[in-house]
Design a protein around this nucleic acid. Sequence first.
DNA 1: CTGATTTGTGTACAAATAACACAAAAATCA
DNA 2: TGATTTTTGTGTTATTTGTACACAAATCAG
Lengths: 227, 227
Amino acid sequence: MKQDIKVSVDAVVFGYRQDDGISVVLIKRKYEPFQKSWALPGGLVLNDESLEEAVRRELQEEAGIDVNYLEQLYSFGQPGRDPRNRVVSVAYFGLVRPDDYQLSAQTDAEDVGWFNIKKMPKLAFDHKHILDVAIKRLRGKIAYEPIGFELLDKEFPFSDLEKLYQVLLDNDLDRRNFKKRIMSLGFLEELDETIQRGAGRPARLYRFNRKKYFELKEKGYNSDLFY
Amino acid sequence: MKQDIKVSVDAVVFGYRQDDGISVVLIKRKYEPFQKSWALPGGLVLNDESLEEAVRRELQEEAGIDVNYLEQLYSFGQPGRDPRNRVVSVAYFGLVRPDDYQLSAQTDAEDVGWFNIKKMPKLAFDHKHILDVAIKRLRGKIAYEPIGFELLDKEFPFSDLEKLYQVLLDNDLDRRNFKKRIMSLGFLEELDETIQRGAGRPARLYRFNRKKYFELKEKGYNSDLFY
DNA sequence: CTGATTTGTGTACAAATAACACAAAAATCA
DNA sequence: TGATTTTTGTGTTATTTGTACACAAATCAG
């Protein structure tokens, strides 16, 4: 019998804001199945586009959002995960900065929104499962690759990084030791500017120097533990 | 236009023998395209089987082999990677013990064989790329998860483990420090039996205790670095 | 001007890792 | 059967890395 399987992509896009914590973009489905349920953005891959192109297109169409970091997460292909057809879905994992936080202009979805990962609504299909895998990846990965910076503004006060790590790995970390460790990695630039937000002493701004990161990585500074 | 994409699976199965080093199972293709080229075992997913079932079936049909460890590797979906159809391939990563090393009874392939990863023939499709990703995963993963044991006999002399790590991470490791580290993880059992192979003092046998490994992992003995 | 809030910074101790060499058991060869 | 070669087995010290810990500086709010 001829193969009758469809291929889709789904995206778990994370964002972070101090007030909100870690959130994910969801869309409200316009059509059956799971009409009006919340779901991960995604859809069928077109014949002539790559998987990554498909994800970016769907994110644009359904949520009006651009991610600044995107990697493949995992593929889900259990028969029966979509009630109608056999669908194999390649899930992606994306990160956006606070700047790009605003969602807009959804044509293919009834609604779009950010949802804190601790207060998720019921999700369509097996999307809860996909989300769980993505959260695990985020937590795991932030500990040994510098992807946390993708969730912050390009220039940020050090305390933002501290707080992000605390929220994600929910432990209390010692501010002094944390800073020592991060700075010793050698790819975080200290700027001359400062920023002031609310009360307290103004904070210096820092910037992740991606070029330097790759240089150091090349030179065999083993991509060991990071935090 | 209707979606016209096929879904396949491919498998990178690693084996290890002292004389041979690290090898991978390849099959010689019976049909076009790439007729008579060497390729990774794999094929189209059937409508009613899971991805993992498809991999195991293909490995059985094409190479007559059972793997004792299998995990999803990555999905490859670039348009044009198969000259005829658009094919999205979900690649898997498998490990076999020396016992299960023998290949057999290929019905769907013209030939099957083990190839040392340093002496690979030209491969069909983008299989060279898939293999590279798999090797990277193997090297990366062996350093922080106990999958090396899946490449050894169930009971093995400690030196086998040493040598495996040396071949994979090609560095000289200090035998004493390596042993201390592995033993301190607490899930390697020292047996009373010994084995003698060629010259030299007989070696004690060891066994990986998977149950204990998961217990310790549960208890939060952070699945930190391993080697 | 006072109190609250946030940023910024160094040192001492503990723990983990790395460096290092020789003896014991068996096989092989003379 | 004795000497040589091969492989396994084991402990201590030095170095590096990680952890614990507290108070001053700069600004805002009242």
